[in-house]
Amino acid sequence: MSGTSRRLYGELERDGVTLVQHTTGRRLVDYISTDALHIVLNLEGQAIIFGQSLRLSLTAGTMTVFHRSTDGMFSASRLQPDENHHYLILSAKTSWIQQTFGSKREALHPNLVQILNSGKASTTSLSQVRSMSLAERELAEELVSPPVQTAAAPFWYMAKIIEIFTLHLFTPQTLAGDNLPFCSSIKKTQKERIEKCIAWLKDHLDEPLDLKSLAQSIGCATHYLSRQFSSSTGMTLKQKLRQLRIDKATNLLRDGDYNVTEAAMEVGYNSLSHFTKAFIEEKGQKPSDIIAEHRRNLA
């Protein structure tokens, strides 16, 4: 079965680190370099990895972290040669790990410390195979399609790669369980991104939703931002914009300084009928009911 291999960042021998996207093609073992640490995000298909004291079985939606030595038995292959396989491999030479993180080796994963101290690295796992979280799946998509201009992509990748290694290599707790610092970091980023989205929508209530401009202001790909916002808030960006518009219109009507038409125009509605329909769907009452309620309170 034919396939492709696309280098997203770096060359291992030249830069010490590389990120490559693979689909079904050559043998998996051909992509696992020696004397290097590998983080594998297995998006589709199944694979088996064997080495010295290493037995890893990857299924769709799982990930793992391991180091391959320069000698000794090692094998990596797709479980079903004819099935589709799609995965990302982030690899770093031992020398790059040493140069980048060696000054803080006392805080690193014990297996990695042993590799750095021994001078003769062994094939060993730093993480058992585990399911990727939703945040990690979204990160994988973002790695394939970075949310920055082409000229900025190398800088974005380098920063992201440092972040990923930092969150995976320091202490065993970063590699197992549901409360991963890696996941927590991504969740924090997601929360900040959602907050920025809502702030942007509030600043552009009277304008049609411009998803491209919004995504650029946040620094995120449009399709990724839409999906992330929906999964985090339970509503689409358009639904959130409507909610914010109607909330503001409600406050304007309750203050008594705006009539229905003025409130509608203030929050971006050019059609009074569309405004009234949206208002009823959001509040369960007509905008004129808010004005009547305000007048009763003044009486």
Rank of each mutant, 00 (worst) to 15 (best):
A121Y: 02
L143S: 01
I290V: 11
T70L: 03
A140I: 07
P208V: 03
A121T: 06
K120N: 09
Y9G: 05
L253D: 02
E281P: 11
G45H: 00
M158A: 11
G268D: 09
S133K: 04
A92S: 04
P110A: 10
L43A: 06
I32H: 00
M73S: 09
P147M: 08
S127Y: 01
L19H: 00
D257I: 09
V20Y: 05
E136Q: 07
W156H: 00
I186M: 13
T24R: 15
T222M: 05
L225G: 01
L205S: 05
D255S: 09
K286V: 08
Q52L: 14
H67E: 01
S231L: 10
G25M: 08
I89R: 00
H274A: 12
T62F: 02
E106R: 14
L272H: 15
G10E: 03
R193L: 09
Q52F: 15
A107P: 00
E83C: 12
S53D: 07
T189G: 05
A249P: 03
E138L: 08
E163K: 02
S33I: 02
P81N: 12
F182A: 04
Q52T: 15
L112Q: 04
I164G: 00
L126F: 03
Y157S: 12
H274R: 13
F170G: 01
D71L: 07
A292V: 05
V129K: 03
S95M: 08
V267A: 02
S125G: 12
D15Q: 13
T70D: 12
L209C: 04
L241R: 09
